[in-house]
Write a protein that binds this DNA or RNA. Structure first.
Length: 558
RNA sequence: GCCCCUGUAGCUCAGAGGAUAGAGCACCAGCCUCCGGAGCUGGGGGCGAGGGUUCGACUCCCUCCAGGGGCGCCA
């Protein structure tokens, strides 16, 4: 049993210490060493200064006020009640009221075995307990190729989905295809105009149409495949066009390493009757009103600034209306316990009314989490490249991926929090490609692979390696860093902030490179060689896992 | 006018109310008889401004300044 706890690494020991503290606090209250005040949440921190141990608690500081006691006294009282478990080397009290825990180094070294035997499952945590969660992302209208902002959402979503899957959730990755509505209409009419023009007929582009050059390319492609037979059949032509655009979108996403489990069609909401059911549901509950010839959702009744149109006076449902049906489908008909949507900053205004409507549907709005990723502006040196599909000045995602590669793309986008807007300077990205943090991390992995290759060539079997020989500072630092992986996963999964991953990857690579500099792995000392090879293998597992979660490659050679 | 996001080192960004605010790049000075130098070690430099809450604020609240986005019977 003890072995199992060790195998799980940091999270387990962290939880163990938390329980220890809580019990000590309760015991202190029983013994009147602490007044019967309500207990705050016990959180363990990772002190930045290694002299302060592996974990620290500020519980005494938090209790001081309500208990009307000196925090140092509380700390000392608590520590006196804690029995030192095997894993812990020492518990120290530090001013003004910290309790610092240091892990035993032979416990630390033993964890290397745990990492190696867990393999690629190392770091996984069971936060979700199998709960069904949907991550919906990208969901771009099939009216043109993806631009860089969409790439950001794609990377965010796919990484988040990876992390949630490793955190015990049953994850579904979904792309919502807006294949209905006004913009689709504009696309059909634009394509038909281009089709006619390509056939030498003088046709007018609709004013709200799509002027990008790709529209002409699609029209020519269709002519090459189908000839003139689609003249007079704009609907049929549109269908072929949408299919072509979707194919491009899929392949652009694949180039970025992004895939989906479900491609959900907006049209299907009408075909399956979900749309009608939801509207009836809302009407029954009095959320629907009619004025000015249109049908409205009474958002103001739910605290919103204004009501929103569901059905336009021309009878066509709005995007909002179909989105309501879509979310009804997600929560009620498909039974997701949590839904995470990743939207661009231009959809920010949609957030609160969507939450309002979800609660109108009788669903706890907390179950809908919306991540807004701020804008991306692409630059080439000082020149800002504006992305707009309608004007045709598109900065295609594919162009970026082809220029800098998917790994650089993913790492770069991931290392910014979704809340911060970002500039992507193509020139800089290319100029810095040699001393890029991406390569720093991947180089670490390749270096490890090379060491393990050499060991194999020399026929070294390190299975029996004795990890307790790993007592050097740089060796223990590497182990400590590796043990943080489950905590990082927990952090990312609970905050839905994948940007912590690249920073962790950088940290692991740094501690590994540092270890490599200080410790020769393959040497004449056979016992030490075996022990260090085990450590190196564990480091490879951690680095590879982090890279894979980020959707990046873990190269054996560079 | 209202709403959302942002302001941290020369640049690009991290920082779950806690101890001496971190990383990459850039700059300066060092490190190769040996497993991959795409590496390692050291150095200089920073929380937009002002109030407040707190034992303690980059972090929470308010005001101001600056930048970005949104306020359609578009999506």
């Amino acid at each position: 049993m003890a072995g199992r706890i060790h195998r799980c690494g940091g999270v387990m020991i962290k939880d163990e210490i938390t329980i220890l503290l809580k019990e000590a606090a309760l015991e202190a209250q029983r013994r009147d060493l602490l007044p019967p005040v309500t207990m705050p949440d016990i959180v363990l921190e990772r002190p930045q200064n290694p002299e302060h141990g592996d974990y620290a608690s500020t519980l005494p500081l938090k209790l001081a006020r309500s208990a009307r006691m000196n925090p140092l006294t509380i700390a000392q009282n608590l520590v006196s009640l804690i029995q030192l478990p095997d894993e812990i080397d020492s518990i120290a009290v530090a001013s003004p009221g910290f309790i610092n825990f240091s892990l035993k180094s032979d416990w630390l070294t033993k964890q290397v075995e745990g990492i190696v035997s867990a393999g690629e499952r190392y770091g996984d945590v069971d936060l979700g307990k199998g709960a069904k969660v949907q991550v919906e992302f990208v969901s771009v209208n099939p009216t043109g190729p993806l631009h860089v902002g969409h790439g950001r959402g794609a990377i965010l979503g796919s990484t988040l989905a990876n992390v949630l899957a490793s955190s015990g959730y049953d994850v579904a990755r979904e792309y919502y295809i807006n294949d209905a509505g006004g913009q689709m209409d504009a696309f059909h009419r634009s394509l038909y105009a281009r089709y006619q023009q390509a056939l030498g007929i003088d046709a007018q582009m609709p004013s709200e149409g799509y002027f990008g050059e790709y529209m002409m390319d699609i029209a020519r492609e269709i002519i090459a495949e189908e000839g003139e037979k689609l003249s007079g059949k704009p609907a049929e032509l549109g269908k072929i066009g949408v299919a072509k655009v979707m194919k491009t979108i899929k392949s652009d996403l694949e180039a970025l390493g992004v895939s989906f489990d479900v491609w959900f069609s907006e049209n299907s909401l009408f075909e399956q009757g979900q749309y009608d059911r939801v509207m009836a549901f809302l009407k029954e509950r009095g959320y629907i009103s009619e004025k000015e010839g249109a049908v409205w959702f009474a958002s103001t009744a739910l605290g919103e600034d204004k009501d929103n149109v569901l059905v336009r006076s021309d009878g066509a449902p709005t995007y909002f209306a179909t989105d309501i049906a879509y979310h009804y489908n997600k929560f009620i008909e498909r039974g997701f316990s949590r839904v995470i949507n990743i939207w661009g900053a231009d959809h920010q205004g949609h957030v609160s009314r969507m939450k309002a409507v979800v609660s109108a549907l009788g669903i706890d709005p907390e179950r809908l989490q919306i991540i807004i990723s701020q804008m991306v502006t692409l630059k080439r040196g000082e020149i800002t490249l504006r992305a707009s599909k309608r004007t045709g000045e598109i900065i295609i995602l594919r162009e970026l991926v082809d220029e800098v590669g998917p790994d650089v793309c993913r790492f770069f986008f991931l290392s910014h929090s979704a809340d911060s807007q970002m500039d992507f300077d193509l020139e800089l990205a290319k100029r810095h490609s040699a001393d890029n943090p991406v390569y720093y991390v991947q180089y670490g992995h390749a270096r490890i692979a090379s060491i393990l290759r050499l060991a194999q060539e020399r026929g070294i079997d390190y299975k029996e390696g004795n990890v307790s020989l790993l007592t050097g500072d740089s060796e223990l630092a590497l182990i400590r860093k590796m043990l943080q992986l489950p905590e990082v996963l927990e952090l990312v999964a609970s905050t839905l902030e994948p940007h912590h991953l690249p920073y962790y990857a950088l940290d692991v690579a740094t501690t590994f490179h540092n270890f490599y500099e200080k410790c020769r792995v393959i040497s004449s000392d056979e016992a030490l060689t075996s022990a260090r090879l085990k450590l190196v293998e564990a480091a490879q597992i951690v680095l590879a896992k982090t890279l894979v979660l980020m959707g990046m490659t873990a190269p054996e050679k560079m």
